[in-house]
């Protein structure tokens, strides 16, 4: 009972804030709703017994990436977009239709697949694999090379961002 009410709480927050992110005119308000969305997702991860991913979601997404977004919005001129249907109403109606079609497609696929072969959650196993210990063990043994590679990717992106954001390219 507690589980399902928590799920409904976080799920509703995730859906509502996702809509808010794409409909608000002011980018700062969108960014703050996106932070709320990431927090709700972290709650859903906890309900799925993925503790490590939930913590990383808060630290990396809601912490680091969103701070980066807010700083960039602050540096640039905060210009509000036009109202949702004010300009190019045809494109907007068309993209809404495309969105609905994609949603219905995914929904039909999920419903067909999951009613034919229902998946039951093994709670004990799910609890075991979501811990920091289990994921760390896997990362530092079988996945050591990809782990090092991702470190290199982060280094490269840091240098790339520095060079791109420099005043003069010379």
């Amino acid at each position: 009972m507690l589980e399902i009410s928590l799920f409904a709480f976080f799920g509703v927050i995730a859906c509502v804030t996702a809509v808010m992110v794409i409909t608000r005119r002011n980018p700062i308000i969108s960014a703050l709703f996106l932070v709320l969305n990431f927090a709700a997702l972290a709650g859903l991860y906890l309900l799925l017994y993925a503790q490590f991913i939930a913590v990383v979601q808060i630290i990396v997404y809601a912490g680091a990436i969103m701070v980066l977004f807010l700083f960039v919005i602050m540096l640039l001129k905060p210009e509000a977009d036009k109202n949702f249907f004010e300009e190019n109403p045809k494109i907007k109606v068309a993209s809404l239709i495309i969105g609905i079609i994609v949603f219905v497609q995914i929904g039909i696929t999920v419903w067909n697949g999951m009613t034919k072969n229902p998946v039951m959650q093994e709670v004990n196993k799910a609890m075991e694999i979501g811990t920091v210990e289990a994921i760390g063990k896997e990362l530092y043994t079988n996945y050591l090379l990809p782990f090092e590679a991702i470190g290199f990717v982060l280094l490269a992106s840091t240098i790339g961002a520095l060079i791109l954001a420099k005043k003069k390219l010379d």
Partner: peptide
């Protein structure tokens, strides 16, 4: 789908 609609409709690069 919200992300898809956002990419298609919004013209602000940050959004």
């Amino acid at each position: 789908v919200c992300g898809v609609v956002g990419v298609l409709t919004r013209r602000n690069a940050i959004i």
